[in-house]
Amino acid sequence: MRPTARLLRTDAGSDLVFTRTFKAPIDDVWASVTEPERTARWFGPWEGDAGPGRTIKVRMSFEDGAPWSDMRIEACEPPERLEVTAADEAGHWRLELRLSEDNGVTELQLIHHLTTEEGMGETGPGWEYYLDLLVAYREGTPKPDFDDYYPAQKAYFEQLR
């Protein structure tokens, strides 16, 4: 698998940006990344009373032990933007999804707003993997194997620094 992410430096820090494109309306792609029965197919289910300023529980089904973690919804602007934060033993995560549609084709950007560029060699391949799980779910193709992403993509992400 080839990594696709770009590292963008902003006034606020560094952003790791991943992009996927779908031949589908924006509302359908939005549902794939926000409805718990659909997120369960590629990321994991979530539960709780969702809304800006609220915290939900998210299960990372494809991680060892399939742990549940708290995720705070910072912004939700359907069907174009979702921003969440999470803190766990792996660190503090600030993630943003941006969607846009042009002529029935929806582009999804996952932006990992980094607190540090350390560890990108470990986290970058994981986001590539999860987004390719989303692609496989939407296209009805076989799920990718994480072993094709890590450690194979580690050097790519480390050289972005």
Rank of each mutant, 00 (worst) to 15 (best):
P25Q: 10
A40G: 08
A40N: 00
R6A: 09
R54V: 05
F43L: 15
I26T: 08
V29M: 06
R9K: 12
P25D: 14
V33Y: 04
S32K: 11
R38K: 13
P45T: 08
R20V: 09
D28E: 14
R41E: 14
G44E: 04
R6T: 12
R2E: 12
G51H: 06
T10C: 01
R9T: 14
P3A: 15
V17A: 07
L16R: 00
L8C: 10
K23G: 02
I26A: 05
A40V: 00
D15T: 05
G13V: 03
T4G: 07
D11G: 15
D11R: 14
A12L: 14
I26N: 04
W30E: 07
L16E: 00
W46E: 11
T21Q: 11
L8D: 12
V17F: 08
T34H: 07
W30Q: 09
P52C: 10
A31D: 13
T10F: 04
D27Q: 11
D49N: 15
E37S: 13
T10R: 12
A24G: 06
P45V: 04
F22N: 03
T39L: 01
D11H: 10
S32I: 06
P25L: 08
G44S: 07
P25S: 07
G13R: 01
I26M: 12
F18S: 04
G44L: 02
S14R: 03
S14E: 10
G51L: 08
L8S: 10
T4S: 13
R38C: 05
S32G: 10
A24C: 02
W30L: 07
D28W: 06
R38D: 03
P25M: 02
S14D: 13
F22Q: 03
S32W: 13
S14I: 02
V17M: 05
G53K: 01
S32Q: 11
T19E: 15
P45K: 03
R6W: 00
E35P: 09
T21C: 04
